[in-house]
């Protein structure tokens, strides 16, 4: 039995300690917002937060998340309020198929915590996720917009 805190809820689960966090979330906890895209830490679709930092959960053993707080796309909105990054995503109509977007949004939230005013180069460096639909220019606009909202812009 291990105990895992996901989106503010603590779960006691019986899983192998080396099972990747992604598959514990999706199979054992029915948290399916984080997506599977490659399984080798190459695409970022599985990005979640562990202790407020972005990790690629397909390549992160669940044992390493024990005692830490895990947040997924489902846990991003607080008190029914969308997160600023989600609002910026809606304003810029970013998603196409949408499959990569939970990963991008989680990576962006983590980026803006560390770097509240990222340049285009900072964004390129920090967001190395793959979007096969090519929503990159909308993502760039939305990241800047989210930074502005978090900085107090209306």
């Amino acid at each position: 039995m291990i105990s895992l805190s996901v989106n503010g809820q603590v779960h006691e689960i019986d899983v192998e300690p080396d099972k990747p966090l992604l598959w514990v979330l999706r199979e054992d906890l029915n948290v399916v917002g984080p997506k599977f895209g490659c399984g080798v830490s190459a695409c970022g679709a599985c990005t979640v937060h562990v202790e407020r930092s972005a990790v690629r959960s397909c390549s992160f053993a669940v044992a390493d998340a024990v005692g830490k707080t895990v947040v997924t796309i489902e846990g991003l909105s607080q008190d029914g309020q969308l997160h600023a990054v989600q609002r910026a995503w809606i304003e810029n109509q970013v998603p196409q198929c949408g499959y990569c977007q939970p990963g991008f949004i989680m990576a962006t939230v983590a980026l803006l915590r560390e770097n509240p005013k990222p340049s285009d180069t900072d964004i390129d460096d920090a967001l190395s996720n793959i979007c096969r639909c090519g929503t990159y220019s909308a993502i760039r606009r939305a990241v800047h917009r989210a930074a502005a909202i978090l900085g107090g812009a209306p």
Partner: peptide, 21 residues
Amino acid sequence: LPRLDILAKVTGRATFGIDVR
């Protein structure tokens, strides 16, 4: 006009094939 599928896709609620439970 705004797309109809955006909210579901930024909140993780859109159900893709691998999300079928």
